[in-house]
Design a protein around this nucleic acid. Structure first.
Length: 367
DNA sequence: GTATGCTTTCGGC
DNA sequence: TTACGGCCGAAAGCATAC
């Protein structure tokens, strides 16, 4: 088979840029999009900031009060997140991207992989041209810039897109993959987290190039067959994971901040019951049921704890969800002595209602 | 022994 | 000087199954 060409399109500082498109007058100012928790005026965190704000030290996840401090002497714009607005822009851009691809895979609200092997006849030259047309069209239609990475597979396309931001376009041809990957730290590889990176560092492996030189068997001995093989291949620029539409979400969750820190179970359940009902509505809309229930608590010291329970079989019953959450949180409070700041509920092990019905029916018939 | 699944934590955006 | 979201999938680490 000829060259596979994968493109990763990443919308730049998406929420803040979306805000810029509906109010051009803020473009040259620091723009900070925030999640306000409602506790006090500035309680909450920064979701995204534009590059003007980033240059002044504002980062995603930072407390709003700290961002304000960093921007106290400048004319900065602080805005609350407007997810419905961003979702609308995202879905229109995603359908543009889908039209430009042979195969398409959206990742999150602002990123997508495009397999463009066929329509470019395996030509990186053509792929780069296609990327420019895509960038032009997104600017024309929606006034947004994006950063694009092009490579022979998903990991390389993703890493390439990170090389130049914002408004970047980075092409890594198959014959360049080794020199491209070699100097990069292992953490850039998808699947290498802090712990794995530490393990690798202990083996004297700091860069992807170091990793590529290790023998496969040694990696398999340390990381197991699956991961060992993956590290060996990916570090050598090889990855066969196809670009394909994602299935249904794997989990649905809600988390929110309490008015005050508490250890009062009934106050907690008041909040989690609301969350259960919202999750229930989502489940009904998508015809899904769940296997596992998780409760999440962010303590007063901001440490995060969770407890989960898998049910014997999938269900979509609200009473089961609320009851399980109740039980988990009751036990949880016995285990920890800190006050709780934020609470959340998550369901996972999702399955289609109809499908499980059919399976159940045929199982009963067989029996 | 490896694969798989479950629970908990981590980290990106 | 402190300050602190919401949601997701990935990773880690262990238990159990095969």
């Amino acid at each position: 088979m000829r060259n596979r060409i994968v493109m990763l399109v990443d919308l730049d500082y998406f929420f803040a840029q979306a805000e810029e498109t509906r109010n051009h007058s803020i473009r040259d100012k620091p723009v900070v999009v925030c999640v306000y928790s409602g506790r006090s005026e500035n309680s909450g965190a920064v979701s995204t900031a534009n590059y003007v704000a980033r240059k002044l030290g504002v980062k995603s996840g930072m407390p709003i009060a700290l961002a304000k401090r960093k921007l106290q002497n400048v004319d900065a714009i602080f805005l609350p997140v407007d997810e419905a607005f961003y979702e609308g822009i995202s879905s229109r851009i995603m359908s543009i991207l889908r039209d430009y691809s042979d195969r398409f895979e959206q990742v999150g609200i602002d990123e997508a992989y495009l397999d463009v092997s066929q329509r470019t006849n395996g030509s990186y030259e053509e792929a780069a041209g296609l990327a420019r047309r895509i960038k032009d069209e997104i600017v024309k239609q929606h006034g947004l810039t994006c950063s694009v990475g092009i490579g022979p597979n998903k990991p390389i396309a993703k890493i390439a897109a990170d090389i130049k931001k914002p408004d970047g376009l980075t092409v890594v041809r198959p014959e360049q993959t080794v020199e491209f990957l070699s100097p990069l730290p292992v953490e850039r590889l998808i699947g290498v987290g802090v712990k794995t990176a530490e393990k690798m560092r202990a083996l004297g492996v700091a860069t992807i190039g170091n990793l590529a030189k290790r023998d496969v068997q040694g990696l398999i001995d340390v990381f197991g067959k699956k991961l060992g093989l993956y590290f060996h291949n990916a570090s050598n620029g090889i990855d066969e994971e196809p670009v394909q539409e994602r299935e249904e979400a794997e989990s649905i969750s809600r988390i929110s901040t309490l008015k005050e820190n508490t250890r009062d179970l009934s106050l907690i359940l008041e909040k989690t019951n609301q969350q259960c009902e919202e999750i229930q509505a989502d489940l009904e809309n998508s015809g899904l049921n769940f296997k596992t229930v998780t409760v999440i608590a962010v303590m007063e010291d901001l440490s995060i704890r969770s407890r989960s329970r898998s049910l014997e079989k999938n269900t979509n019953r609200t009473e089961v969800l609320k009851g399980t959450v109740n039980g988990l949180f009751g036990k949880f409070l016995e285990e920890f002595n800190l006050e709780v700041r934020r609470v959340g509920v998550k369901v996972s092990g999702l399955a289609k209602d109809e499908k499980s019905q059919k399976q159940l029916t045929s199982f009963i018939k067989q029996g």
